[in-house]
Lab assay of single mutants.
Amino acid sequence: MDETGKELVLALYDYQEKSPREVTMKKGDILTLLNSTNKDSWKVEVKITVNGKTYERQGFVPAAYVKKL
């Protein structure tokens, strides 16, 4: 869990989004878990840094590609 009590997951593999509802992640990324009720895909939040500014983006990733921490 992070400092706000949200559950975290670790990306086990790289994943490139295939639709606007998904998010891209790299192996080793730590993501905030938002919903894990679907056995196939979990909703997560990723933090992306562009030019020194951090943005948050929500979307789905394959459940088999992440592990709860």
Results as ranks from 00 to 15, higher is better:
residue 15 Y to D: 00
residue 48 I to Q: 07
residue 62 P to I: 08
residue 3 E to M: 14
residue 56 E to L: 15
residue 24 T to H: 03
residue 10 L to G: 01
residue 13 Y to I: 10
residue 40 D to L: 12
residue 55 Y to G: 03
residue 66 V to N: 00
residue 31 L to D: 00
residue 46 V to D: 00
residue 20 P to S: 10
residue 51 N to S: 08
residue 7 E to T: 13
residue 68 K to M: 11
residue 40 D to S: 10
residue 61 V to N: 01
residue 58 Q to I: 12
residue 12 L to P: 02
residue 18 K to I: 06
residue 52 G to V: 02
residue 56 E to G: 13
residue 34 L to K: 03
residue 26 K to Q: 08
residue 32 T to H: 08
residue 58 Q to P: 02
residue 47 K to A: 08
residue 44 V to M: 01
residue 22 E to H: 04
residue 27 K to N: 03
residue 59 G to T: 02
residue 3 E to P: 14
residue 15 Y to S: 01
residue 61 V to W: 02
residue 51 N to G: 11
residue 39 K to F: 08
residue 1 M to V: 12
residue 21 R to S: 14
residue 30 I to D: 00
residue 60 F to T: 04
residue 4 T to P: 13
residue 57 R to P: 00
residue 40 D to F: 14
residue 63 A to L: 02
residue 54 T to C: 12
residue 23 V to M: 07
residue 7 E to W: 13
residue 21 R to H: 14
residue 18 K to T: 11
residue 29 D to Y: 05
residue 15 Y to F: 06
residue 39 K to H: 10
residue 32 T to C: 10
residue 14 D to Y: 05
residue 53 K to H: 12
residue 61 V to M: 02
residue 16 Q to H: 12
residue 54 T to A: 07
residue 14 D to C: 08
residue 23 V to G: 02
residue 38 N to R: 09
residue 67 K to F: 08
residue 6 K to Q: 11
residue 69 L to W: 07
residue 67 K to L: 11
residue 38 N to S: 11
residue 15 Y to A: 01
residue 11 A to D: 01
residue 19 S to M: 06
residue 51 N to W: 06
residue 2 D to N: 14
residue 61 V to R: 01
residue 40 D to Q: 10
residue 36 S to P: 05
residue 36 S to T: 09
residue 44 V to D: 00
residue 28 G to M: 03
residue 51 N to P: 02
residue 19 S to T: 11
residue 54 T to Q: 10
residue 2 D to E: 13
residue 35 N to Y: 06
residue 51 N to M: 10
residue 4 T to F: 12
residue 31 L to R: 02
residue 12 L to G: 00
residue 51 N to V: 04
residue 29 D to Q: 14
residue 8 L to I: 08
residue 18 K to Y: 04
residue 40 D to C: 14
residue 34 L to N: 02
residue 57 R to T: 05
residue 26 K to D: 01
residue 31 L to E: 01
residue 62 P to L: 07
residue 44 V to C: 03
residue 45 E to F: 07
residue 54 T to K: 07
residue 30 I to F: 05
residue 56 E to R: 15
residue 58 Q to H: 07
residue 46 V to R: 09
residue 17 E to H: 08
residue 7 E to M: 12
residue 18 K to E: 08
residue 37 T to C: 14
residue 59 G to Q: 01
residue 52 G to C: 06
residue 15 Y to P: 02
residue 64 A to S: 13
residue 45 E to G: 13
residue 11 A to T: 05
residue 57 R to H: 06
residue 6 K to P: 13
residue 35 N to Q: 09
residue 6 K to H: 12
